[in-house]
Design a binder for these strands. Structure first.
Length: 583
RNA sequence: GGUCCCGUAGCUCAGUCGGAUAGAGCACCAGAUUCCUAAUCUGGGGGCCAGUGGUUCAAAUCCACUCGGGAUCACCA
């Protein structure tokens, strides 16, 4: 249960009955009322600004409203004290027994603790990665992949019905380049000397096996043939091969999307025409000439009449072209149709995860969604660059020479779990440093290690306890029956409170579409746990296993088992496996 | 020139729908060590939240402008 929404319900009910009693106006708007943990723990466990928010509506002083509300809250069994503080905050302090009782709930929920119904089963589409199928995944793709995946998991946990999706950009001119590059390798497979790969084609060795496969499947029929003979087939074959490779790479990272949507199919199905006509019918499209961009001299710029979408009607800066000079649709044109397709498939809520270099594209896409469907919602999350380092020294990469670090290399060197966790240790729109040495460091400076270590320590204590008390049942159901009243040290209660904050964390992170908050929360929780552990060094009576006191030991085991469940629950969102022992 | 993102302790960064005395890690300073895993621990100093103005009972948070850093700007995706 989410402690704060629980009390929110109680406070709302009390406000309503004050309305009925005439102490507050009949119609009150409580949507800005917050029931949350106070920033300063000395203010208690739960704080509400209700009196402040309602002051103007009720035409009463905040502290007077607080005084109306306080008695009913004071009357609750689980509330120890109620105080009216500062300008009119109401601070509640809950009884130890209330917190102690939370442990049982956590143990019975297990890793499902924190699951929320906030989303109400609403369908959400999260599109991420969508790397061009022209080569293997490289580090630049990793962050978006991990972010999108964790965000999807997070939304799922918060009660949304999430579809993880990938758009295959298999229609653009880069696919022709891919096909020509693969064709060269096909010639090479037939023993031709291809020399150095010409500028503008993909030089990577990963196309060698594709050339081989083409040779085996199609023989020598295309040698010395015109491009229009083989291009279409090689395009398809090469794209398929690249997508297989990309799916394998993603699998290494633990990313498995359920829908792979082909841009080419979008063109072929006539969907784009359909959507453009629909926009035209709504008056969002016209033929016109754009102003040249200011401040930047572009020699090639020439005024030209083209098909434009009135993005400016929806907050964009200029209207955007839907067709290229050769009559083909622009990527934007196709993308509008793609988003409309998602909408028609039942996703009113869509999230796109892009690299930060696509930031200039956000407004026009959101404009298009608004232009097509008033109730459609598109949130675009931009992921900033990852700086790869090795012992503090930047790793040099050059895309031109094909010398980039691949996703596979990263995952094979440091592991999936470490890669995923580190990618979420920064806000998505802030740049992130990824140091091969530091992420494997086994010290508290490394958040992955620190969190994993906390989980492993709990597992280790549970094992030790079975040795200390022969026949002790440490199963979750047994621990759930422990006498939690024995766990009453302030540090223990604080530990429970932090675990109990987990459901609220899930909801707020999901609402903000910010999975990194989970990583920070886990770090804080682990930190609290380690600190508690260390207290046992100074004060042996605070250790988890107390010889001769089986009931107390069991209660403490129940507590730390809860901590482990919350950590496991959080790691699951991040797509990281909790460790039962280190190394 | 337009647009978007960023600017918080010496460094790297958190900061929830606007909420009470702005937090953490590193670094620095001072202590601790027979201990369930020392793969260290405890405590301390350190801030004009880039700046100015505005909205509000209340602003790091919202709005406007300025400064500084990055990204991007029809016919690529």
């Amino acid at each position: 249960m989410n402690v704060f929404t629980h009390f929110r319900g109680i406070i709302d009910a009390e406000l309503a009955s004050l309305s009925v009693a005439g102490s507050l106006p009949a119609e009150i708007d409580t949507k800005n009322v917050a029931v949350e943990p106070p920033r300063d723990a000395s203010h208690g466990d739960i704080a509400t600004n209700a009196a402040l928010v309602l002051s103007k509506q009720a035409k009463k002083k905040p502290r007077d409203i607080a005084a109306l509300l306080a008695p009913a809250l004071e009357a609750l069994d689980v509330v120890d004290t109620v105080e009216i503080a500062g300008p009119g905050f109401i601070n509640l302090r809950l009884s130890d027994s209330f917190w102690q009782n939370q442990v049982q709930g956590i143990l019975s929920a297990g890793k499902a603790f924190g699951n929320s119904r906030m989303g109400g089963g609403e369908r959400v589409n999260v599109e991420y990665v969508s790397a061009n199928p022209t080569g293997p995944m490289h580090v630049g793709h990793v962050r978006g992949a991990v972010f999108g995946d964790a965000l999807s998991n997070l939304l799922q946990k918060a009660g949304y019905d999430v579809t993880k999706e990938y758009l295959i950009n298999d229609a653009g001119s880069q696919i022709d380049v891919l096909a020509r590059s693969a064709y060269l390798r096909y010639c090479e497979a037939h023993g031709r000397d291809i020399g150095t790969i010409p500028e503008g084609l993909y030089p990577g060795n990963y196309l060698v096996p594709v050339g081989q496969a083409l040779k085996e499947k199609y023989g020598d029929q295309w040698l010395d043939a015109d491009e229009d003979v083989w291009l279409a087939t090689v395009r398809d074959e090469a794209t398929d091969a690249m997508m297989d490779m990309i799916r394998d790479d993603l699998k290494l990272l633990g990313v498995e999307q359920s829908v792979f949507f082909s841009e080419k199919q979008l063109h072929a199905s006539g969907k784009i025409d359909e959507v453009v006509e629909q926009l035209r019918a709504r008056g969002h499209i016209y033929e016109g000439v754009l102003e040249p961009p200011k401040g930047q001299k572009d020699e090639d710029w020439e005024p030209r009449e083209q098909t434009l979408f009135r993005a400016t009607n929806f907050g964009d800066d200029v209207d955007r072209p839907l067709k290229k000079s050769n009559g083909d649709y622009t990527y934007f044109g196709a993308d509008i149709a793609y988003h409309y397709d998602k909408y028609q498939r039942g996703f009113k809520s869509m999230i796109d995860v892009w690299g930060a270099d696509h930031g200039g594209y956000v407004k026009r896409m959101q404009s298009a969604v608004k232009g097509l469907a008033e109730d459609g919602e598109l949130d675009v999350k931009l992921c900033q660059l990852v700086r790869l380092l090795r012992d503090g020294v930047p790793v040099k990469m050059s895309k031109r020479s094909g010398n980039f670090v691949t996703l596979r290399e990263v995952v094979e060197e440091v592991g999936r779990d470490v890669t995923r966790f580190i990618m979420l240790t920064r806000k998505n729109d802030a740049p992130l440093d990824f140091d091969f040495a530091k992420v494997l460091d086994q010290s508290k400076d490394n958040p992955v290690f620190y969190v994993q270590y906390a989980h492993a320590r709990v597992c280790s204590v549970l094992n030790k306890a079975k040795e200390a008390f022969s026949g002790l049942d440490t199963s979750d159901t047994s621990l759930a029956g422990a006498d939690m009243a024995l766990v009453n040290h302030p540090a223990e209660i604080a530990m429970i409170k932090q675990c109990a904050a987990w459901p609220r964390m899930v909801e707020s992170a999901a609402e903000a579409h910010e999975p990194h908050r989970i990583a920070f929360f886990l770090y804080d929780l682990a930190s609290e746990f380690h600190t508690f552990w260390n207290k046992g060094n100074d004060e042996p009576s605070l250790r988890f296993i107390i010889e001769g006191k089986e009931d107390l030991t069991k209660a403490r085991l129940a507590l730390i088992r809860s901590v482990a469940f919350v950590i496991a629950s959080g790691l699951e969102v991040l797509g990281v496996k909790p460790l039962e022992e280190m190394r």
